[in-house]
Nucleic acid binder design. Structure first.
Length: 268
DNA sequence: CGGGCTGTTGACTC
DNA sequence: AGAGTCAACAGCCC
């Protein structure tokens, strides 16, 4: 479940590893993840050079000499810097590079690998409406995002058009850190609660960003992130004592997703 | 072996 | 606006 900490880490690694390298060939195993016909995709990317990589939420934006290579790993996957002689068992796409290495992309569901020509980013529907990166949202911006919204705070945090990068894995700890129940409505938060939410977003993401992402995702070299299970406060820890008050963590249904909360610290 | 669960996203409905 | 449902490229657990 790659979310902002993992994707931000991958983007940094790609920026370091790929800048200046040229794509010499493209192998597409899974054309359904593309946004344009396979032939056009290969034609556009062959010969393109990587300039710079950064993340916007869960998307990696690779700026190329002739456009953008946009990657979203969906519900989990790997981006590996490898060699043709050492390919993993499963992969969806390979970019051969001019130094004889290659970039291998795999994901297990719903990943996207898109090409957008220079100047046409605004027409790319899946990324055009992304909100600001969750780790960069200021308190004032958060105020604006919450203002007048009557929906639940959890679904708002997961809405990538409002604020981008948070997924169902990190949202449990973010809300716990803020002492907010996921079904609290956005416009019901008082000033102190908005500040708590802002801190919760920061503190819920930062440790994993600093550790290169979660242990269940790997970096470009195949090494797992260092944000471990014991770094997670309450997410997926049903029955464990709340680290603040000792009340057992419970799993509740919130719309179509599950939420883990401390029923004492996060009263509705 | 089959069913249900799990991270994402957009389209579509009411 | 927002909540609910569905479907789209797996893999795991029971």
């Amino acid at each position: 479940m790659p979310e902002l900490p993992e994707i931000k880490s991958r983007a940094k690694e790609m920026n370091q590893a790929l800048a200046g390298k040229t794509i010499t060939g493209v192998e597409v195993v899974q054309p359904k993840c593309l946004n344009i016909p396979e032939e056009a995709f290969i034609q556009n990317l062959t010969g393109a050079q990587f300039l710079e990589a950064e993340n916007r939420g869960k998307w990696i934006f690779n700026q190329l000499t002739n456009g953008w290579l946009l990657i979203n790993l969906g519900m989990g996957g790997e981006i590996l810097l490898s060699f043709r002689e050492n390919l993993p068992e499963k992969y969806r796409l390979v970019f051969d590079l001019d130094d004889s290495s290659c970039l291998v992309i795999n994901f297990w569901w719903f990943g996207y690998v898109h090409f957008v020509a220079s100047g046409e980013l605004a027409a790319h529907k899946m990324t055009a409406k992304l909100g600001p990166n969750a780790d960069e949202v200021s308190l004032a911006e958060l105020h604006e995002i919450l203002k007048g919204r009557r929906g639940g705070i959890k679904s708002l945090l997961l809405d990538q058009s409002k604020i981008t990068g948070i997924g169902n894995a990190y949202v449990h700890d973010i809300l716990f850190l803020a002492r907010l129940h996921p079904l609290r409505t956005a416009d019901s938060l008082n000033e102190a609660e908005i500040e708590a939410l802002h801190r919760g977003i920061q503190e819920g993401l930062r440790p994993s960003i600093e550790k290169g992402g979660a242990f269940y995702e790997v970096n470009l070299l195949g090494e797992p992130g260092k944000f471990n299970g014991e770094d997670i406060l309450i997410g997926y820890k049903e029955g464990n004592p709340c680290p603040i008050c000792g009340t057992p963590i419970v799993k509740i249904k919130t719309g179509s997703t599950a939420s883990y909360i401390c029923p004492t610290c996060q009263a509705i």
